[in-house]
Simulated assay, not measured.
Amino acid sequence: MRLLLAALHYNHNANRETAWRSDGTEKYCVRYPRFRKGAHVVRPIKEAASYGYATSLMKALRESYANSPAVLREVSANLSSDAPAPIAKSFEKIPKEEAVSLYLARQSCFKTT
C-alpha cells in the first residue's frame, strides 16, 4: 500500500513548477545526500505539493476501519515506531549562500546564449 500511495503522490505532483521569491529569484535548497558522502547538492525548490487525491483515500480508509478500530491502532503503532537519525546529520554543513553561488557558477558553464 505504501508503494501505491507513493506512486499516486508522485504522479499527482511530478510536474510542479519552480518556486519563486517575491523579488523574482528562484528558491534553492542545500541537501547532503549519503551518496555524496557529506558533500552538498543544491536543488531548486518546487512549488508546494498538492494532496487532492488524499480526500478520497481518507474516506475509503475511514470506511474500511469503521468496524475494527483495534486494527487501526495496531497499524498506527507499527507505522510510528522510532526510526534512526539520518546519516546526513553527522556531516559538516556548508552555508546556503555559498552552496547556491557554487551551484549557479557550475550551471552557467552549461547555458548557451
Rank of each mutant, 00 (worst) to 15 (best):
G24F: 14
A99G: 04
P33M: 03
I94C: 13
T112F: 08
V71P: 13
A99T: 01
E92T: 10
K37Y: 11
E17T: 01
A105D: 01
K89S: 15
S90P: 15
L8H: 08
S56D: 12
T55S: 14
F110E: 04
E92Q: 04
T113I: 08
K37H: 10
A60H: 00
Y51V: 07
K37M: 14
R16L: 09
L8N: 03
A88G: 14
P69N: 06
K93V: 07
E74G: 14
R106W: 13
S90Q: 12
R2Y: 07
H9N: 10
R106L: 15
R16C: 04
N67C: 03
C29P: 00
N13Q: 06
R62Y: 01
Y32H: 07
H12I: 14
S56P: 01
N11G: 14
V75P: 14
A6Q: 04
N67L: 02
T113K: 05
K89E: 14
K37T: 10
L79W: 06
F91H: 05
P84Y: 03
C29S: 06
L3T: 12
F35E: 12
R16A: 05
P33K: 00
T112G: 01
G38R: 04
R31I: 10
Y28A: 06
L8M: 11
L61R: 01
K46F: 04
A39E: 09
L104R: 03
R34I: 14
F110H: 08
N15E: 12
T25G: 05
A99E: 01
L102N: 02
L72I: 12
M58W: 08
R106S: 13
A6Y: 10
K111Q: 07
V42R: 02
